[in-house]
């Protein structure tokens, strides 16, 4: 019982194809993965191995073709499209590689978007957004437009946006790959110290070896499968070093 309730995500034999017939690409070939609550899990692996596809399935923005997958006990395959959209709105936070902020609205408005989607009024949502911006160290930049912020600042805005509605799962696709080394570390510290909580899971896709140290566990993918899961990044280096 304690075992079950400590699990955030549980995937078994997840398969995902893109396209049909001869053009069919199999991106996931039976993924088994468990993510615990309070855990920061990194997904690593070569380009095209299926990392983005896997977090898309986990976050409920992509349907799997086979296998089982529950997120905080919920199975998207059993939900209506509407219920799934709603569930995502309440329980998932997103951080994208390209930040993906709306360029014509202020930092605070960008951060407030998830609350407004859930029906919160503009004024109240903006007030809350300013508090969260404070938490990521951008309290004084709430009126700035994305273009007036540096890349690192924009990603901090994106992290604030992923947190504001108190989601139970935060998924990040390459959150530091567009940033320099130092800024990447700032972002990771924010994710680890501000975003991560006991009852929340963070899944971060990356191929940025410099940030591996922030992970609780690292899942290495190859060709649509999870090859192994390690807790110490040095094991990863050691494992891959000889052959290549």
């Amino acid at each position: 019982m304690t075992e079950a309730s400590s699990i955030a995500i549980e995937c078994k034999g997840v398969v995902k194809h893109y396209g049909q017939g001869a053009a069919r690409v199999t991106a996931l070939r039976g993924v088994d993965l468990t993510v615990r609550k309070g855990e920061l899990l990194m997904l690593v692996g070569p380009s095209g191995c299926g990392k983005t596809t896997l977090i898309s399935v986990i976050a409920g923005v992509l349907d799997r073709n086979e296998g089982a997958c529950t997120v905080f006990g919920e199975d998207f395959a059993r939900m209506s499209a509407r219920a799934r959209t709603r569930w995502r709105g309440e329980n998932v936070g997103f951080v994208f590689q390209a930040f993906n902020l709306i360029p014509t609205i202020t930092a605070a408005e960008n951060v407030a978007v998830p609350l407004m989607i859930l029906g919160e009024g503009h004024g109240a949502a903006i007030r809350r957004a300013r508090e969260v911006l404070e938490m990521v160290g951008l309290g004084d930049r709430w009126r700035a437009l994305p273009a007036q912020l540096s890349g690192g600042q924009q990603q901090r805005v994106a992290i604030a946006r992923s947190l504001i509605h108190g989601p139970r799962l935060i998924v990040c696709d390459e959150p530091t790959s567009a940033l320099d080394h130092q800024t990447g570390h700032v972002i990771m510290r924010l994710l680890k110290n501000v975003a991560l909580r006991e009852d929340r899971a963070l899944v971060i896709v990356t191929h940025d070896a410099r940030i591996f140290g922030f992970a609780d566990r690292i899942a290495e993918m190859d060709d649509g499968r999870i090859e192994r899961i390690v807790t110490d990044p040095r094991e990863l280096m050691a494992g891959t070093a000889p052959g290549r």
Partner: peptide, 16 residues
């Protein structure tokens, strides 16, 4: 479109 898609991912339904 990418912003609209992001809004959908973040829970925006068709009615919104």
């Amino acid at each position: 479109l990418r912003h609209f898609a992001a809004l959908k991912a973040m829970g925006a339904g068709n009615w919104l």
